[in-house]
Amino acid sequence: MKKSYQKIKPQKRQKPHLRLGTIALLLLVFLGVGSSAWQLWKLHVSVEQQINQLTQQKEGLMQQEKSLHEEIAELNTPSYVEQLAREQLGLVKHGEILISPKN
Rank of each mutant, 00 (worst) to 15 (best):
L61F: 00
N52G: 07
E65I: 15
Q50F: 04
Q56D: 08
I72E: 08
Q64C: 09
E74D: 14
N76P: 01
L75P: 01
L75I: 01
L68M: 04
Q63V: 03
Q57D: 06
Q64W: 01
V47G: 13
S67K: 06
Q49S: 11
Q63L: 04
K66Y: 05
E65K: 15
S67N: 12
Q63R: 09
S46A: 15
Q50T: 09
N52D: 11
S46T: 04
V47E: 15
I51L: 09
Q50W: 02
K58H: 02
K58W: 03
E70S: 12
L68T: 03
G60Q: 11
L75G: 08
E59P: 00
L68Q: 01
Q56L: 12
L54H: 06
Q53I: 12
L68E: 00
E70W: 06
K58N: 07
L54Q: 13
L75H: 06
E74K: 11
L68P: 00
L61S: 05
E48H: 10
E59L: 13
Q63M: 05
A73D: 13
K58Q: 09
M62E: 14
Q53R: 08
E48V: 01
Q56N: 10
M62K: 15
Q49T: 05
Q53T: 14
I51N: 08
Q53S: 12
L54F: 05
T55G: 03
L61W: 01
E74G: 08
E48I: 02
L75Y: 03
Q49N: 15
N52S: 13
E70N: 14
N76L: 02
V47Q: 15
E48P: 03
K66C: 02
Q50K: 09
Q63S: 06
L54G: 07
G60F: 02
N76G: 01
E48R: 12
I51Q: 07
Q57S: 05
I51C: 04
I72W: 00
N76Q: 06
E71V: 04
E70L: 11
L68D: 00
E71K: 15
E65L: 15
V47D: 15
Q50Y: 05
E70H: 11
E71S: 06
M62S: 04
Q50V: 09
I72T: 10
G60T: 10
A73S: 08
A73P: 00
E71P: 00
M62L: 15
G60H: 06
L68R: 01
Q57N: 04
G60R: 09
G60M: 08
E70K: 12
V47I: 13
M62A: 11
E48C: 04
E59A: 14
G60I: 14
K66H: 05
